[in-house]
Design a protein around this nucleic acid. Structure first.
Length: 740
DNA sequence: GCAAACATGATTTTT
DNA sequence: TCATGTTTGC
């Protein structure tokens, strides 16, 4: 049976165990994804389950996409009938189809965190609460928390004990009202309302329960209570629920993921079979052992016994540098070195860090040496102001009741309508039980709270424009609609007139490109799926991994990925573990440890654990202490390296600098600073990245081709066959070479 | 209503 | 340090 071929006994068992509840505890690199897909294939091919009766739930679009692709390969066409998707996408589909009994309009829009925040602010204003006293972000978080626990405002009210709880409860209540009026749901509602639907409407629940014979949940350690309830409801009839996770990789408790769900699962399904995937196929023995030592310190932990048949491999490298610039420089020179000798490509390397701010120093070093890098995360495409603006226009055209989106676009581009007018209009609308759009309409018809002629004209103009666009939205393709809206609203001229207008305009064009996919749909029918895609599938950053491009990524985002070489920078107290977690203590510290574990277990062949003597945080430089996690890795696994390969050398340099730093008077200090700055800012320009086969030009020897590269200390020796001058060995940093 | 000065606070962010 | 939000003055 080819489906089982190449699986180890534990994996086979996991695939073949198709009856009843199943909990798979899958360590890092244990072939988890493979097991999930093979299991689905097994269900269909061997057990004969109809693909339509299988649901597979993931957390990320990327995971869902990859799963679908793999299934497509294994099963062909029929794979499309499997309900595979993220929790949110699956719930959105359920609510659009069956949300009516809960009073949910099928055209609902989905509010993201920004929208949530705006709505909270609006609610605070409505309730006459001071946003300085009641931090909108904290309130948003509290509401989100309540929803993750499946608590309604009244449910929360029952538990409230303090003044703060009381406030939350009141805002939450108002917030839900406003969502309803806007025909909107937020991300958390997608899950919560789906559960409510099933709890309140037995008939709907039964329909879904009988349809889905098999349920699979990936990254189960990241589920919150509401998600757990959803799974339990959906699987309530057939009880063929298979959940896969790794408690040691639970790093999203701050998003209300609740590790206790794993315990609940075993309790709720007393007959659940528990399987452990303990063989690691990813990392060397040394890396795996180092990781295991770090994680084993955690108290609240299920014991496991990870092992690997892989080679011992290189030691775990621990590197101390003076500061983050030097740290970054080490990463760069090490990548150049590895690239020359060990058959490693820059694309096989990743630099991981705890906080996004740490990427800066690394980026600067990469740029200085002309190494390519890909920064994961950062400013997300759909978070950009100009993109959100255009989307807000589209949302209003699709659903004019969407007050948050309308409040957004009413101000941009500037049309003489300011904060005062907006709040007057909003309040008037509220008092008259009208949506903002309806209030706008009223003004345009001569009603409203009595604005001056100038403002009335501006508002009427806006209303007419939106109305025209709504008509057009039924006739035009999305692309044409976007063009029309940019034109009529004056947004195009407004954005292109700005400082970085051209870049923003490019982004809008990019959005337009996404819309092209929906152009084949009949006019008026593309908008809804387009908006849904944008709300739920917010990852445009394709996974294209290139051989020449190193990945820069946070530890959180690195979960699920793997690289031959991993550099973990900033392994210092205050960063990893993060200061906040240190202050909170207990569970949060254990989570930091898991984060460290996730990082180390991303590495296949080599891992570099790096820390500095001094680091600048928020501009000010201060001394740093090596992370406590480093102490938990036994010495026999470790090799310490300095910047130039020799430990003494590096320490010598550091001491020298410390000395200069500390006993200097002002003048010297500034001179030192300037010198360091100059050193940092003026890179050896000639240090280009060369690969065998590249053509180069030398000022003396003329043109030639690179035939070999090997490391030479901190530098690289390149062997070049020159046309005319013959074969030469040159030091990369010294030779006057340019790539041609 | 809008631009510029000023204050503030800053992990992580699957959807 | 730097991005974001709020106050201030025109």
């Amino acid at each position: 049976m080819d489906i089982l071929a190449g699986l180890n006994p534990a994996q086979k068992e996991a695939v073949q165990q198709v009856e009843g509840p199943l909990l798979i505890l899958a360590g890092p690199g244990s072939g988890k994804t493979r097991v999930i897909t093979q299991r689905i294939a097994y269900l269909i091919k061997t057990t004969g389950v109809n693909p339509r009766r299988i649901m597979a739930v993931t957390f990320t679009n990327k995971a869902a996409r990859e799963m679908k692709e793999r299934l497509q390969k294994l099963l062909g066409q029929v794979a499309e009938n499997i309900s595979a998707g993220t929790f949110h996408a699956i719930c959105a589909r359920i609510l659009r189809q069956d949300g009516k009994p809960l009073g949910i309009d099928p055209n609902f829009v989905i509010y993201d965190e920004d929208d949530q925040q705006s709505l909270v602010k609006q609610c605070l204003q409505d309730l006459d609460l001071d946003p300085r006293q009641y931090n909108p972000q904290k309130i948003r978080n509290a509401i989100s928390f309540a929803k993750s626990q499946h608590l309604t405002p009244s449910g929360l009210g029952g538990q409230s004990s303090s003044h703060w709880d009381d406030i939350i409860c009141r805002v939450y209540e108002r917030y839900q009202e406003q969502l309803g009026q806007s025909k909107a749901v937020d991300f958390d509602d997608l899950l919560m309302k789906a559960v409510q639907l099933f709890e309140k409407h037995q008939d709907v629940l039964e329909r879904y329960q009988s349809r889905y014979l098999h349920l699979m949940v990936d990254e189960f350690q990241d589920t919150n209570i509401t998600q757990y309830k959803l799974i339990r409801l959906l699987g309530g009839r057939h009880r063929n629920v298979c959940v896969v996770g790794d408690p040691d990789q639970s790093i999203y408790s701050w998003r209300f993921a609740d590790i206790r769900n794993i315990l609940s699962f075993e309790k709720d399904y007393a007959d659940a079979k528990v399987l452990m995937l303990e063989q690691n196929y990813r990392s060397t023995k040394n890396i795996l052992e180092a990781a295991s030592c770090v994680i084993s310190i955690n108290k609240k932990r299920k014991h496991n016994n990870l092992w690997t048949a892989n080679t011992e491999g290189a030691p775990v490298f621990m590197i101390k540098t003076y500061n983050e610039q030097e740290e970054a420089q080490f990463v760069v020179s090490e990548i150049l070195k590895l690239t020359g000798s060990d058959g490693i490509k820059p694309g096989g390397c990743a630099v991981m860090y705890r906080t996004n701010a740490q990427s800066r120093a690394v980026e600067e070093a990469f740029m200085r040496y002309g190494l390519k890098y890909k920064l994961i995360g950062g400013m997300k495409f759909y978070q950009r102001r100009e993109i959100k603006d255009v989307i807000a226009y589209l949302r209003v055209l699709h659903n004019p009741f969407d007050n948050i989106s309308l409040s957004r676009i009413i101000k941009i581009p500037g049309r003489g309508i300011g904060a005062k007018t907006l709040s007057d209009l909003t309040n008037w609308g509220r008092d008259n039980h009208l949506s903002l759009f309806a209030a706008l309409q009223a003004v345009s018809g001569g009603g409203g709270p009595g604005f001056g002629a100038r403002i009335s004209a501006a508002l009427s103009g806006l209303y007419r424009m939106l109305n025209d666009l709504i008509v057009e939205s039924q006739q035009l393709s999305i692309v044409k609609l976007i063009d029309a809206l940019l034109d009529k609203s004056g947004y195009r001229d407004c954005i292109r007139g700005e400082d970085d207008g051209e870049e923003r305009w490019e982004n809008i064009q990019e959005l337009r490109t996404v819309a092209v996919d929906y152009d084949e749909l009949p006019p008026g029918e593309g908008l809804s799926p387009f908006l849904e895609q944008i709300s739920l599938v917010a990852d445009t950053d394709e996974i294209e991994s290139r051989e020449d491009t190193t990945t820069l990524i946070t530890l959180h985002q690195a979960k699920g990925l793997e690289f031959p070489v991993v550099f973990m920078v900033g392994m210092e107290e205050g960063l990893l573990p993060h200061r906040r977690s240190m202050e909170a203590g207990g569970d949060e510290l254990e989570e930091e440890r898991r984060l460290c574990y996730v990082g180390v277990t991303r590495a296949e062949q080599q891992v570099y654990l790096m820390h500095t003597a001094r680091r600048s945080i928020f501009g000010a430089s201060s001394e740093s202490t090596p992370s406590r996690f480093l102490d938990d890795i036994p010495e026999h696994l470790v090799e310490r390296k300095g910047l130039s390969g020799a430990d003494e050398h590096s320490i010598g340099r550091t001491e020298q600098r410390e000395k200069r730093w500390s006993d200097d008077d002002e003048g010297n200090n500034i001179a030192d600073l300037l010198a360091r700055k100059a050193q940092a800012l003026q890179p050896p320009k000639e240090l280009i990245v060369l690969n065998p086969g590249d053509r180069v030009r030398h000022t003396k020897f003329g043109d030639g081709q690179v035939i070999g590269i090997k490391p030479s200390g901190n530098d690289k020796e390149v062997i070049i066959a020159f046309e005319g001058s013959g074969v030469k060995k040159l030091l990369l940093s010294m030779a006057p070479l340019e790539k041609i």
